[in-house]
């Protein structure tokens, strides 16, 4: 966890958007393993995980653009960036909109692993080493919880949209439009 306040704020943003994805992925993955190959989880949820991740990445990009408003020059966008590599890594998640990457959900898993590892490292240091206050650990757990809900929400939204699109396409084909 960064020492500087501004770096910590950036770190919190990144963790909020990306750290919870791994757990959501793990749960969906485990559920899918015990379901038939044609089940909803396996056919709808699991394939949509990279899209949900890309959606979370897009939300993160949106937040950055909102923060930069109204000056979108490169100078302004890069000014004051404390964790440039981690930010770039986070923004790379948008690439999961690309159909080719969607077919490899494990890449999204690896991408999210970086944020999960950083959060776990920070939590373990706070929980299992001597520190006078528990507030930081509790705060990190809140961030992690929000991240899980955010990624879960993203998955639900993406799945609903994909279902609607699929239904629309089915109707389109059946009516022969």
């Amino acid at each position: 966890m960064p020492d500087s306040f501004f770096a910590y704020a950036e770190w919190v943003e990144l963790e909020t958007f990306f750290a919870g994805y791994l757990l959501v992925y793990a749960i969906i993955y485990l559920v899918a393993l015990n379901r038939p190959a044609t089940g909803f989880v396996k056919t709808r949820l699991l394939p949509n995980l990279p899209l949900a991740y890309a959606f979370a990445g897009t939300l993160y990009l949106g937040l950055q653009l909102k923060n930069a408003y109204p000056d979108y020059t490169i100078e302004h966008l890069t000014a004051g960036v404390q964790l440039p590599y981690l930010r770039i890594w986070g923004l790379i998640s948008i690439l999961f909109w690309i159909p080719l990457l969607q077919k490899k959900p494990v890449f999204s898993l690896l991408h999210s692993l970086v944020f999960f590892f950083l959060l776990m490292k920070s939590l373990f240091l706070q929980l299992f080493t001597s520190s006078p206050g528990n507030d930081m650990a509790r705060n990190n757990m809140k961030i992690y919880s929000i991240s899980i809900f955010l990624n879960l929400g993203a998955l639900i939204l993406v799945t609903i949209i994909s279902l609607l699109i699929a239904r629309f396409n089915t109707q389109k084909r059946s009516t022969g439009i």
Partner: peptide
């Protein structure tokens, strides 16, 4: 990552562990 469920179980257990840890840990006495 693609075929084994060990990693998924590990992630869930790890998350559970830190949740329990952060909820039950008392502040150190100074």
């Amino acid at each position: 990552l693609s075929n084994s469920k060990i990693w998924a179980v590990a992630v869930i257990m790890l998350s559970g562990l830190v949740y329990i840890g952060s909820c039950t840990r008392d502040n150190d006495l100074i």
